[in-house]
Computed example of a mutant assay.
Amino acid sequence: MNKFYGTGIAIVTPFHADGQVDYDGLKNLINYLIDGGVEYLVSLGTTGESATLNSEEKKKIWAFTADMVKGRVNLVAGIGGNNTAEVVEQVAAFDTTGYDAILSASPAYNKPTQEGIYQHYKAIAENSSLPVILYNVPGRTCSNVSAETTIRLARDFKNIIGIKEASGNFDQINQIMRDKPEGFLMISGDDPVSFPMIALGAVGVISVIGNALPRQTSDMIRLCLNNNFKAAQKGHYDLIDFTRLCFVEGSPAGVKTALKQLGICGDTVRLPLVQVSDYTAGQIIKEIQKF
């Protein structure tokens, strides 16, 4: 489980201007992130625009990413959805070569009860040959995985090893940290609150802004994990404006603007997402130049 301490990056999927996957851009990004000192990568999480990729594109991206990483860092595959049977089929058929875990977001739109969420993750856990990381992001799914459900899953399934928690609800985070089994990982899923979450016992972050600023993000997280919060505080504050700008017109459009400025890949996103406005792009470019 120490594989998932530190900074993970929910990597974007670069596209050419015509919307096709840009594998040269993806190669550039992978090498840039590894050179930036991050601990692991998440391929095709929601930041990777997985909702707009078909099954063949996903298989190709997963295989390409594993081939480019070549074991240099740990690797997680994002496999989720709101059709449990379909998710279970994808998990069972997944080629695990080069991968260390699966990250699966709670179902969006359906708004299942807590029992429905439990049964959804039970089915995934029972069909996965890899460890499973839960992902709670109520702002996108419109349903919350409660602290009680998280703890129940953590206790009932040894291969459910942690949660990417992006509720922003510190009362809930406190309950999970107090009641979780020993070794169950709390991972921040929200860049702006990684600092205080680590102070409560989280083991790191799965970051969006780290796509553009891997060194700054991972350095700050490592300082936090070493209990050097005073030194980490400056890095945390330095990232505030850039983080806000990356999300103000939606993710991953903002961070892709920064990646284009850095010469890593283009800023194309697939509909229904669109590129950020010229004004916001200008603000992001000004902020990235400070680093």
Rank of each mutant, 00 (worst) to 15 (best):
T257H: 08
I61T: 03
I209T: 04
K234L: 01
T257K: 10
L103W: 15
I176D: 00
S277V: 01
W62S: 07
G78S: 05
G71M: 02
A258K: 00
D278R: 00
L259G: 02
P214S: 05
D67F: 05
P272K: 10
D95F: 12
K27R: 15
T96R: 14
A166Q: 05
I124D: 12
G81M: 11
L239F: 00
I11Q: 11
G8A: 12
Q119S: 15
R270V: 02
E89I: 01
T65C: 03
P112S: 11
T47F: 01
D156H: 09
Q90E: 15
C246I: 05
T7D: 09
S129L: 10
I176C: 03
S128I: 03
D24I: 07
Q283R: 04
I240T: 04
S194T: 15
I117N: 13
A253D: 01
P107Q: 12
I285C: 02
A63N: 10
G266H: 05
G210N: 04
M220E: 03
L200F: 13
C142E: 12
G80W: 05
P112Y: 11
V274Q: 09
L53F: 09
C265R: 08
G210T: 01
A253R: 02
G235D: 06
S277H: 07
E249A: 05
Y118D: 11
I117D: 10
E148W: 11
A17R: 13
G282L: 10
A85E: 14
E165M: 02
I198D: 07
I176R: 10
M186H: 08
A202S: 11
T257R: 06
G98Q: 14
I173M: 08
L75T: 01
D100H: 14
R72W: 09
I117T: 15
N136P: 05
C265H: 06
R222L: 07
V193F: 08
G282R: 07
S106N: 14
V255H: 10
I117S: 12
Q275A: 13
T150K: 01
L273R: 00
Y279Q: 12
G116A: 12
T84Q: 14
Y109N: 14
Q90C: 09
S277R: 02
S277T: 12
D190H: 04
R152M: 12
M197Q: 06
Q289E: 15
T13C: 13
N2A: 14
N31T: 06
N136D: 13
I34V: 03
